[in-house]
């Protein structure tokens, strides 16, 4: 089967600062990949480059999403094509309720795909169902987007958006950080519920803990802007014991 996401020899950075140095990664539909790596290794940068954030420039290499190059697509086009990023630091938008945001987002994506907008009643039903499944009460939907949310609530909210939008590829950037164990389980349940044969996931994390709940098919170690080692779930456990020291050195010396 052809890859859902295929990254070859990606060199990218912010303005003139190179951050990703020849990164290659391939995810097939149905697979969950985890990327682990020390702080500053470029994990968030990778997620921004994939999602098309302004100021993040690709100087070399290729990113194919379902066979189409992402390089020429605006961020919203990538979202419409089914790429979703759960942010490490979700943004606040004062005055815009969670509900309004979800609805605007869902309908923008449906319009972008040439589908009809969802009617108000169906939307409400869906939003309630998905938020309850994530252990969020209905009040959360009426609150202003991420304003005054705790770290855990923000992360949960990202997963709610993912559940509503049902992306083809979900990139989760340190969704586990700042969560207590119960919240971690709920979020992991939410993610696991979305695992599907036609959906791929890229789970970025600093700690092995999350991978106890979301079982990855492949684990990659990232250091200094590239993948330095790949393996099965056992690699995560190994890292937990030995730390990243070895890889950081290797990458620097390479």
């Amino acid at each position: 089967m052809s890859a859902l996401l295929d990254i070859q020899n990606l060199h990218a950075g912010v303005e003139d600062t190179p951050i990703l140095n020849g990164l290659s990664l391939s995810i097939r539909p149905g697979e969950v990949h985890a990327i682990m790596g020390p702080n500053g290794s470029g994990k968030s940068t990778l997620s921004y480059v994939l999602a098309g954030k302004d100021g993040y420039n690709v100087s070399q290499g290729e990113m194919l999403f379902n066979g189409t190059s992402l390089a020429y697509m605006a961020p919203e086009e990538r979202a419409i094509a089914g790429l979703f990023l759960a942010f490490q630091y979700p943004l606040e938008i004062p005055g815009v309720t969670n509900m309004t945001f979800l609805k605007t987002s869902l309908n923008a994506i449906r319009r972008g795909r040439g589908e009809d907008e969802m009617d108000a009643a169906s939307f409400l039903r869906l939003a309630r169902e998905k938020s309850r499944a994530l252990g969020m009460n209905d009040d959360m939907l009426k609150r202003q987007l991420n304003v005054g949310f705790s770290g855990g609530e923000k992360k949960r909210n990202e997963i709610l958006q993912m559940a509503m939008l049902e992306p083809k590829l979900a990139i989760l950037d340190e969704t586990d950080s700042g969560l207590d164990i119960d919240a971690l389980k709920t979020v992991a349940d939410g993610v696991n519920a979305l695992r599907a044969p036609d959906r791929g996931m890229l789970v970025i994390t600093h700690y092995q803990r999350l991978l106890d709940f979301i079982k990855p098919d492949v684990v990659h170690v990232m250091a200094d802007g590239k993948i330095v080692k790949s393996g099965g779930p056992e690699l995560a456990l190994e890292l937990e014991k030995s730390g990243y020291g070895e890889y950081v050195g290797e990458a620097v010396n390479a």
Partner: peptide, 28 residues
Amino acid sequence: SDDQLFFCQQRGLDAEEAVALIVNGFCR
């Protein structure tokens, strides 16, 4: 902020829809 705009765009809104949404929130 650029980050707010990017966040909205990542959720499917084009830049102008994003501005309209953020401004409407500001005026709520």
